[in-house]
Protein backbone atom coordinates (compact mmCIF):
# COMPACT_ATOMS: atom_id res chain seq x y z
CA UNK A 1 0.00 0.00 0.00
CA UNK A 2 2.84 2.34 1.01
CA UNK A 3 4.68 1.80 -2.29
CA UNK A 4 1.43 1.67 -4.25
CA UNK A 5 0.66 5.26 -3.21
CA UNK A 6 4.15 6.46 -4.16
CA UNK A 7 2.80 7.26 -7.62
CA UNK A 8 1.29 10.80 -7.30
CA UNK A 9 -1.45 10.15 -9.91
CA UNK A 10 -2.46 6.95 -8.12
CA UNK A 11 -2.46 8.80 -4.79
CA UNK A 12 -4.75 11.49 -6.21
CA UNK A 13 -7.12 8.79 -7.49
CA UNK A 14 -7.24 6.78 -4.22
CA UNK A 15 -7.51 9.88 -1.98
CA UNK A 16 -10.28 11.15 -4.28
CA UNK A 17 -12.31 8.07 -3.27
CA UNK A 18 -11.32 8.31 0.43
CA UNK A 19 -12.20 11.98 1.03
CA UNK A 20 -15.97 11.80 0.44
CA UNK A 21 -16.11 9.05 3.10
CA UNK A 22 -13.64 10.58 5.54
CA UNK A 23 -15.05 14.13 5.61
CA UNK A 24 -18.64 13.23 6.63
CA UNK A 25 -17.32 10.62 9.07
CA UNK A 26 -15.17 13.33 10.72
CA UNK A 27 -18.18 15.68 10.96
CA UNK A 28 -20.37 12.94 12.47
CA UNK A 29 -17.75 11.89 15.04
CA UNK A 30 -17.14 15.55 15.95
CA UNK A 31 -20.85 16.15 16.58
CA UNK A 32 -21.23 12.98 18.68
CA UNK A 33 -17.99 13.56 20.62
CA UNK A 34 -18.89 17.15 21.57
CA UNK A 35 -22.47 16.15 22.40
CA UNK A 36 -20.94 13.71 24.91
CA UNK A 37 -18.45 16.35 26.12
CA UNK A 38 -20.89 19.25 26.57
CA UNK A 39 -24.19 17.54 27.40
CA UNK A 40 -23.60 14.01 28.73
CA UNK A 41 -20.35 14.34 30.73
CA UNK A 42 -20.90 15.47 34.33
CA UNK A 43 -19.07 18.45 35.86
CA UNK A 44 -15.95 17.58 37.87
CA UNK A 45 -16.40 17.46 41.65
CA UNK A 46 -13.50 19.91 42.14
CA UNK A 47 -13.20 21.89 38.89
CA UNK A 48 -16.92 22.15 38.11
CA UNK A 49 -17.78 23.08 34.51
CA UNK A 50 -14.24 24.25 33.68
CA UNK A 51 -13.25 20.58 33.30
CA UNK A 52 -14.97 20.74 29.88
CA UNK A 53 -12.01 22.76 28.56
CA UNK A 54 -10.12 19.45 28.81
CA UNK A 55 -12.18 18.05 25.90
CA UNK A 56 -10.54 20.57 23.57
CA UNK A 57 -7.20 21.08 25.32
CA UNK A 58 -6.13 17.42 25.65
CA UNK A 59 -6.99 16.30 22.06
CA UNK A 60 -5.34 19.43 20.60
CA UNK A 61 -2.20 18.88 22.72
CA UNK A 62 -1.98 15.15 21.91
CA UNK A 63 -2.40 15.82 18.19
CA UNK A 64 0.11 18.71 18.30
CA UNK A 65 2.75 16.24 19.54
CA UNK A 66 1.53 13.40 17.30
CA UNK A 67 1.62 15.52 14.14
CA UNK A 68 5.21 16.58 14.85
CA UNK A 69 6.24 12.92 15.31
CA UNK A 70 4.39 12.12 12.04
CA UNK A 71 6.41 14.84 10.26
CA UNK A 72 9.72 13.53 11.63
CA UNK A 73 8.86 9.93 10.59
CA UNK A 74 7.77 11.14 7.13
CA UNK A 75 11.11 12.93 6.65
CA UNK A 76 13.06 9.87 7.84
CA UNK A 77 11.17 7.80 5.24
CA UNK A 78 11.91 10.50 2.69
CA UNK A 79 15.63 10.36 3.47
CA UNK A 80 15.89 6.54 3.70
CA UNK A 81 13.34 5.21 1.18
CA UNK A 82 13.16 8.26 -1.12
CA UNK A 83 9.38 7.97 -1.02
CA UNK A 84 8.19 10.79 -3.31
CA UNK A 85 5.22 11.74 -1.11
CA UNK A 86 6.98 11.59 2.28
CA UNK A 87 8.32 15.17 2.28
CA UNK A 88 5.06 16.46 0.81
CA UNK A 89 3.10 14.70 3.58
CA UNK A 90 5.27 16.31 6.26
CA UNK A 91 4.89 19.73 4.64
CA UNK A 92 1.11 19.30 4.37
CA UNK A 93 0.86 18.30 8.05
CA UNK A 94 2.80 21.29 9.45
CA UNK A 95 0.12 24.03 9.39
CA UNK A 96 -2.40 21.61 10.92
CA UNK A 97 0.00 20.73 13.75
CA UNK A 98 0.79 24.42 14.29
CA UNK A 99 -2.90 25.30 14.69
CA UNK A 100 -3.39 22.38 17.13
CA UNK A 101 -0.44 23.75 19.15
CA UNK A 102 -1.96 27.25 19.24
CA UNK A 103 -5.31 25.77 20.37
CA UNK A 104 -3.49 23.79 23.07
CA UNK A 105 -1.67 26.90 24.36
CA UNK A 106 -4.74 29.17 24.33
CA UNK A 107 -7.16 26.65 25.89
CA UNK A 108 -4.47 25.76 28.44
CA UNK A 109 -4.17 29.42 29.41
CA UNK A 110 -7.99 29.72 29.66
CA UNK A 111 -8.09 26.61 31.86
CA UNK A 112 -5.14 27.85 33.93
CA UNK A 113 -6.69 31.18 34.94
CA UNK A 114 -9.63 29.77 36.98
CA UNK A 115 -7.62 26.75 38.24
CA UNK A 116 -4.18 28.23 39.01
CA UNK A 117 -5.03 31.93 39.15
CA UNK A 118 -2.82 32.76 36.14
CA UNK A 119 -2.98 32.44 32.37
CA UNK A 120 0.69 31.72 31.88
CA UNK A 121 3.80 30.60 33.76
CA UNK A 122 7.14 29.72 32.22
CA UNK A 123 7.13 26.21 33.69
CA UNK A 124 8.69 23.25 31.88
CA UNK A 125 5.48 21.91 30.25
CA UNK A 126 4.18 25.24 28.97
CA UNK A 127 7.61 26.45 27.86
CA UNK A 128 8.37 23.21 25.98
CA UNK A 129 4.94 23.41 24.32
CA UNK A 130 5.71 26.99 23.28
CA UNK A 131 9.03 25.74 21.83
CA UNK A 132 7.01 23.19 19.81
CA UNK A 133 5.06 26.08 18.27
CA UNK A 134 8.35 27.82 17.38
CA UNK A 135 9.58 24.57 15.79
CA UNK A 136 6.42 24.37 13.66
CA UNK A 137 6.82 28.02 12.60
CA UNK A 138 10.53 27.51 11.85
CA UNK A 139 9.74 24.38 9.83
CA UNK A 140 7.14 26.20 7.72
CA UNK A 141 9.49 29.19 7.31
CA UNK A 142 12.15 26.89 5.81
CA UNK A 143 9.72 25.65 3.13
CA UNK A 144 8.78 29.26 2.33
CA UNK A 145 12.34 30.58 2.33
CA UNK A 146 14.08 27.95 0.17
CA UNK A 147 12.98 28.00 -3.49
CA UNK A 148 14.41 24.67 -4.64
CA UNK A 149 12.03 21.94 -3.29
CA UNK A 150 14.65 19.18 -2.81
CA UNK A 151 16.91 21.52 -0.83
CA UNK A 152 13.95 22.82 1.18
CA UNK A 153 12.90 19.24 1.97
CA UNK A 154 16.40 18.41 3.21
CA UNK A 155 16.67 21.45 5.51
CA UNK A 156 13.06 21.12 6.73
CA UNK A 157 13.69 17.41 7.36
CA UNK A 158 16.65 18.23 9.58
CA UNK A 159 14.49 20.74 11.53
CA UNK A 160 11.74 18.11 11.96
CA UNK A 161 14.06 15.27 12.96
CA UNK A 162 16.20 17.34 15.36
CA UNK A 163 13.11 19.05 16.77
CA UNK A 164 11.39 15.77 17.61
CA UNK A 165 13.66 15.56 20.68
CA UNK A 166 11.30 18.18 22.16
CA UNK A 167 8.37 15.71 22.11
CA UNK A 168 9.56 13.43 24.96
CA UNK A 169 10.68 16.57 26.83
CA UNK A 170 7.08 17.87 26.65
CA UNK A 171 5.64 14.48 27.65
CA UNK A 172 7.93 13.90 30.64
CA UNK A 173 8.44 17.56 31.67
CA UNK A 174 5.78 17.19 34.37
CA UNK A 175 7.75 14.30 35.91
CA UNK A 176 11.30 15.58 35.41
CA UNK A 177 10.67 19.08 36.78
CA UNK A 178 8.47 20.69 39.39
CA UNK A 179 5.70 22.24 37.27
CA UNK A 180 2.44 24.05 37.87
CA UNK A 181 0.93 21.83 35.16
CA UNK A 182 -0.60 18.64 36.56
CA UNK A 183 1.13 15.27 35.97
CA UNK A 184 -0.07 12.87 33.24
CA UNK A 185 -3.53 11.45 33.95
CA UNK A 186 -4.19 9.57 30.69
CA UNK A 187 -1.00 7.79 29.55
CA UNK A 188 0.65 6.78 32.81
CA UNK A 189 1.70 3.60 34.56
CA UNK A 190 -1.33 1.99 36.22
CA UNK A 191 -3.82 3.29 33.64
CA UNK A 192 -5.82 6.47 33.24
CA UNK A 193 -6.68 8.38 36.42
CA UNK A 194 -9.93 9.75 35.00
CA UNK A 195 -13.49 8.64 35.82
CA UNK A 196 -15.11 6.64 32.96
CA UNK A 197 -17.90 9.26 32.61
CA UNK A 198 -15.24 11.79 31.61
CA UNK A 199 -12.74 9.41 29.98
CA UNK A 200 -15.20 8.09 27.35
CA UNK A 201 -16.10 11.54 25.91
CA UNK A 202 -12.43 12.50 26.07
CA UNK A 203 -11.45 9.48 23.94
CA UNK A 204 -14.23 10.32 21.44
CA UNK A 205 -12.95 13.92 21.24
CA UNK A 206 -9.41 12.63 20.63
CA UNK A 207 -10.76 10.40 17.87
CA UNK A 208 -12.59 13.38 16.34
CA UNK A 209 -9.39 15.45 16.32
CA UNK A 210 -7.44 12.53 14.79
CA UNK A 211 -10.05 12.18 12.03
CA UNK A 212 -9.96 15.94 11.45
CA UNK A 213 -6.19 15.73 11.07
CA UNK A 214 -6.52 12.86 8.57
CA UNK A 215 -9.11 14.75 6.51
CA UNK A 216 -7.19 18.04 6.44
CA UNK A 217 -3.92 16.20 5.73
CA UNK A 218 -5.47 14.43 2.76
CA UNK A 219 -6.83 17.69 1.30
CA UNK A 220 -3.52 19.49 1.90
CA UNK A 221 -1.43 16.62 0.53
CA UNK A 222 -3.55 16.43 -2.63
CA UNK A 223 -2.98 20.19 -3.05
CA UNK A 224 0.75 19.66 -2.48
CA UNK A 225 0.90 16.98 -5.20
CA UNK A 226 -0.96 19.23 -7.65
CA UNK A 227 1.31 22.17 -6.66
CA UNK A 228 4.36 20.09 -7.64
CA UNK A 229 2.76 19.31 -11.00
CA UNK A 230 2.04 23.05 -11.47
CA UNK A 231 5.66 23.90 -10.65
CA UNK A 232 6.88 21.27 -13.14
CA UNK A 233 4.63 22.71 -15.85
CA UNK A 234 5.72 26.28 -15.12
CA UNK A 235 9.38 25.24 -15.32
CA UNK A 236 8.71 23.31 -18.55
CA UNK A 237 7.01 26.36 -20.04
CA UNK A 238 9.90 28.63 -19.08
CA UNK A 239 12.30 26.03 -20.55
CA UNK A 240 10.39 25.81 -23.83
CA UNK A 241 10.26 29.63 -24.16
CA UNK A 242 14.00 29.92 -23.43
Amino acid sequence: MFNYLANPSRFLKVSGYALPVLAPLTAAVFLYAYYLALVVAPPDYQQGETVRIMFVHVPASALALGVYVFMAIAHILGFVLRHPLADAAARAAAPIGAVFTVISLITGALWGKPMWGTYWVWDARITSMFILLLLYLGYMAVWKAVDEPHRAAKIAGIVAIVGVINVPIIKFSVEWWNTLHQPASLLRPGGAAIAPEILTPLLWCMGAFALLFATLLLINLRAEVVARRVRQMELARVGSVA
Partner: peptide
Protein backbone atom coordinates in the same frame (compact mmCIF):
# COMPACT_ATOMS: atom_id res chain seq x y z
CA UNK B 1 -23.90 21.76 31.23
CA UNK B 2 -24.83 24.53 33.66
CA UNK B 3 -24.45 27.81 31.73
CA UNK B 4 -24.62 29.86 34.94
CA UNK B 5 -21.86 27.97 36.75
CA UNK B 6 -18.78 29.69 38.14
CA UNK B 7 -16.00 30.36 35.55
CA UNK B 8 -18.22 29.14 32.70
CA UNK B 9 -17.08 32.12 30.58
CA UNK B 10 -13.64 30.49 30.34
CA UNK B 11 -15.27 27.35 28.89
CA UNK B 12 -17.19 29.37 26.28
CA UNK B 13 -14.08 31.38 25.34
CA UNK B 14 -11.96 28.21 25.02
CA UNK B 15 -14.52 26.50 22.75
CA UNK B 16 -15.08 29.71 20.77
CA UNK B 17 -11.36 30.29 20.13
CA UNK B 18 -10.79 26.61 19.23
CA UNK B 19 -13.77 26.59 16.83
CA UNK B 20 -12.64 29.85 15.22
CA UNK B 21 -9.07 28.57 14.70
CA UNK B 22 -10.32 25.26 13.26
Amino acid sequence: MDVHAKHVEFVFTAYGVAALLL
